[in-house]
Amino acid sequence: MDVYGKGFIVADFFTHTYRISARADTRKRSLADHLNDRLTSYLELYDTFVSRLHKPSEIVASYSLASLRKDGITFVILATEKETSERHTYGYFAKQFYDVFLTVPSFEIKGKLQVVGKLDLHVLLVKGTDTFITISNPVASPSLFPDITFTGGTVLVNKSRIELFCISESPSP
């Protein structure tokens, strides 16, 4: 798997039953930008390796080219924070991190949500135009196999897949 090629990002894409490790061509944009781009429904993947959720390290299929339906993605784990969108990271408002816990089909995810300015869940989850929200320092566990954990720098969670969204009352120190 090439992680050095320009414009490519290697990530773990999770549906509610599969782990798909693949390279996405982001054309020098961030993966979050691509996922939130409403003009395309599919994500083109290269060097795709598929594992079933109950044995996530066992590769059951591999193809050099694949297409993944964006609304079929539950979440995407990226190795570092750099690979997500940075367009909300500037401004005159203070940036604060809140501990979050959310459930999505087959998974529970813990992490830190970066909020710029005042926390407004309605804006974040309903009014906001982004399909995927970014959570840092994530720990995702399959609900049926809680001993297995997936970690990374960032997770991009499909908002339409969120069943329960819990957030700490005050920002974490």
Partner: peptide, 24 residues
């Protein structure tokens, strides 16, 4: 490898690897 998860590391060590390094 580009696979960064702990489960990947564990499986690699069980398969006989001595060291596990991610492509980061």
């Amino acid at each position: 490898t580009a696979r960064i998860q702990e489960i990947d590391r564990q499986t690699a060590l069980e398969a006989g690897a001595n060291e596990f390094l991610t492509k980061t």
